[in-house]
Design a protein around this nucleic acid. Structure first.
Lengths: 328, 328
DNA sequence: CTTGACAATGTTTACGTAAACATCCACTGG
DNA sequence: CCAGTGGATGTTTACGTAAACATTGTCAAG
């Protein structure tokens, strides 16, 4: 910066003003400084900047691996949205989903160049987190239900699950089976609860819950079991991957979809339109979730807000060919 | 830091030594300092640290969206590997794959708190990049073929494609059709080239190349066309998603897989084992690619290396049920 | 012609850390 | 008992920037 100042025959402060686009600089001077910057290949030192300004213009994202498609799409939206607000995004991967790892990530965070944090954590590990964040670091959590302790942005899991079940009931099915996600997952839990509540509200029998682990493979195993249930005519699967495996199992067992069994998924991953048959599913707006996370956390920073709350992003039923009216 | 020093009745320098795990501090003093740190909730200021040390311990990752599964898995491996080496990862998303956007990302990089850069860029935009990186910032590129201008780490696309084609020829097929990825993609281009070369080397006819865009939907459209080609008995698809769509189209047209047509994919996404039928495919080791990117760039930083080169990660054929011997 | 106001620019300083150098002290060997 | 040695700790300084304050010059109003 000093070199630039010298070359442009101005003070370093003027260089700083130009560099930050501040007013009070003649157009002539500005041009001269910019020319000097170019000539010397000057780049502001962001460490010094951050030190002086007391902020990094960076958001940290803690995420338990990028294994699920939803997390990734959310992350992408966060990165894009953050960039639009002039913020960078630093990744803080938690390799193994253990309490220790989560605590570790939280404490590493303290030393990290980060102004605020977004946590994408579908697992129940947040409750028991023993490490608190450094004061002044705002947090927003995606895909959780810790609304009382944190500010949460999430898809309306319950609403989506309710729509899925109602769709199948409307098609004339007596009841709906549910292939749930793993026990530790908030999202899985809420989708399962909504499924149960909706059936109950409609006065239907609640079949036993079948548990998967989000993977297509687990859907396949569940499908082999469900294919042998004679009165199973409709299945609500907690995500599209498991639906994929389920479809394969049903096909292998000679159960036609949707003629014998209707299947509905959750997420609307791009591939689901190409399943056999194309999958009816609940569309999640991950981009919106990511955007709201960023805006929420930036807003909290500005207002130094301490209050919590939950923002829900609505879902949308995408009707394709895997669901049909009940045949008798 | 000064507060900690005062509370522990030592100098700030001693606090620094403890904080960095340097030797030359009595066990007693260390304990005292650590206690003071805890009591005051001290966190080293990473901006000051970076300013003083002249490095950020951060890697930047430029990636054109996170749309493809491979990029994501690579990114995840990069993040994990970087963390192991004590580095953070900052994301630099390029929203739209235009030359301007890429140039913009490169120049923003100059102001970013980043010691080195990994570029995940499957598109031909790197060649024409007009903005050069700030001097001293090392770069490694994944998923590209700019080996003469950059250090490149990539999957052995050609080897994988060759194995795929040979596998089908070995099963007795006269030739192999190819459903390629989009024109702009390096990976797609190299897979297609290797397909053509392998056929030629085996003295087979080269059917016309069919072009998709990586999406399952494009695979479906291609499948509708291929289903009507009477002598098409084997298809090599440039990724698994397109294979999914292809399988659906073939099924709709009553062409049985693998009895009438064999299909082989590329990537080995987790879902491919649950396709109908389970997909034979070429497994890519994305984790390895990510790891090598990080190690490569850290190594270049240490050695201030300027030379370029390409590191190839081998693939592996995963045989499932979508390929079979040619029936006549 | 003077005063004041305001715009453009310059000077000083502090942000929190760690390298370089300086000091102190205990202990060893002669 | 003393010089010498090396480990433990303290002091000074610079990293690059931007806020706060200081200075200069210009122009309009009286």
């Amino acid at each position: 910066m000093a070199d630039v100042a010298q070359l442009a025959s101005v003070s370093s402060q003027t260089v700083s003003r130009v560099s930050n686009g501040f007013p009070g600089v003649t157009e002539d001077t500005r041009r001269q400084v910019l020319a000097a910057m170019r000539e010397l290949g000057y780049r502001p030192n962001s460490a010094a900047r951050a030190l002086r300004r007391g902020e990094f213009r960076t958001l940290g994202v803690i995420t338990f691996s990028l294994s699920t498609m939803g997390n990734i799409r959310t992350l992408e939206a966060i990165a894009t949205s953050a960039a639009q607000h002039g913020y960078a995004v630093t990744l803080l991967p938690v390799a193994v989903p253990t309490q220790d790892e989560v605590n570790g990530a939280f404490s590493r965070l303290g030393e990290l160049a980060v102004d605020a944090v977004i946590v994408i954590m579908e697992i129940h590990l947040l409750d028991a987190a023993t490490v608190s964040l450094p004061p002044g670091v705002q947090v927003v959590v995606a895909d959780s239900d810790a609304g009382d302790r944190y500010t949460v942005v999430d898809t309306d899991q319950a609403g989506g699950a309710r729509d899925a079940v109602r769709h199948l009931l409307d098609l004339g099915h007596d009841t709906v089976w549910h292939l749930a996600g793993p026990e530790g997952s908030f999202a899985a839990q809420r989708r399962a609860n909504a499924w149960r509540d909706t059936l109950r509200a409609a006065g239907r029998v609640t079949p036993p819950l079948v548990r998967g682990d989000w993977s297509a493979e687990s859907g396949y195993r569940a499908g082999l079991r469900l294919a042998d249930e004679p009165d199973c005519t409709a299945v609500f699967t907690a995500n599209d991957q498991m639906a994929l495996g389920l479809l394969r199992a049903l096909h292998e067992r000679g159960r036609r979809v949707p003629d014998d069994i209707s299947v509905i998924g959750f997420d609307d991953i791009p591939e689901s339109a190409s399943f056999l048959p194309p999958l009816t599913t609940i569309h999640q707006d991950f981009a919106q979730v990511g955007r709201l996370c960023v805006e929420g956390v930036l807003d909290k920073m500005r207002r130094d807000g301490a209050e919590h709350g939950t923002t829900l992003v609505p879902t949308r039923l995408v009707r394709r060919e895997s669901t049909g009216v009940r045949r008798r």
